[in-house]
Design a protein around this nucleic acid. Structure first.
Lengths: 105, 105
DNA sequence: AAAGTATATGACTATATGTGAATATTGTCA
DNA sequence: TGACAATATTCACATATAGTCATATACTTT
């Protein structure tokens, strides 16, 4: 894998690599939402949510459209759910690994 | 999605979210490697490679075993390749999106 | 035991990221 | 136009991350 490709891919993974942004993506996977809808998901200021969404937009994961005062956010790439699956896989295999260790030692 | 779950998942994605670590994972997906094998992949010091590998280990993505002087690294979770697929998906849909914009405007 | 090889770690610097508070922008409605 | 609501942006600061160099550790070979 070339460095440029890896960099492009890393940028996307980086955009996902935050608890808050994962929760935003998770919520958006169930339908479009405006910032105010998403606000209660995390205990941070509106400013912070806005910046997290900006990162997701910047990575091409999320798009937005205006609807009057609201800015509606839309999950552009449902393929993101693959990445979420992957994390579950790691967590599972880690749990397995740990239980093996405790059995042996 | 709860914050604790999201945090665990974010930790894994964070471990992947670096060009160098992606290249390491990519190489490991083709077989086990020791640090010296991986060193030429990135133009950083041995120290840096070692730290990157430590992060992958810490996230449960990679495991290691001693073989004499060598520390052999092994990709524990091939499911990681799902996450890599996902990034391709985003890149593709972004390219599509961009070409639509240039056509319309 | 001494020398050598492979890898990890500590101390440090530079840069990036996350955050709240305050402020700016954009759009609506009276 | 003026007041208001939703969202974005800027600033100042704290913390995290990536990198290097020097050094420590683990193991092998002579």
């Amino acid at each position: 894998m070339k460095y440029v490709d890896a960099t492009a891919r890393a940028k996307i993974l980086k955009a996902l690599a935050s608890p808050i942004r994962l929760m935003l993506v998770d919520e958006l996977s169930r339908g479009d939402r405006c910032v105010n809808d998403l606000r209660p998901l995390a205990q941070v200021t509106q400013s912070a949510i806005s910046r997290h969404l900006a990162q997701l937009k910047n990575a091409g994961i999320v798009t937005e459209r205006r609807a009057g005062l609201r800015n509606i956010h839309h999950l552009e790439c449902p393929c993101i759910l693959q990445a979420l699956d992957c994390t579950l896989g790691v967590l599972r295999s880690e749990a397995q690994h740990r239980s093996k260790l405790t059995k042996t030692e």
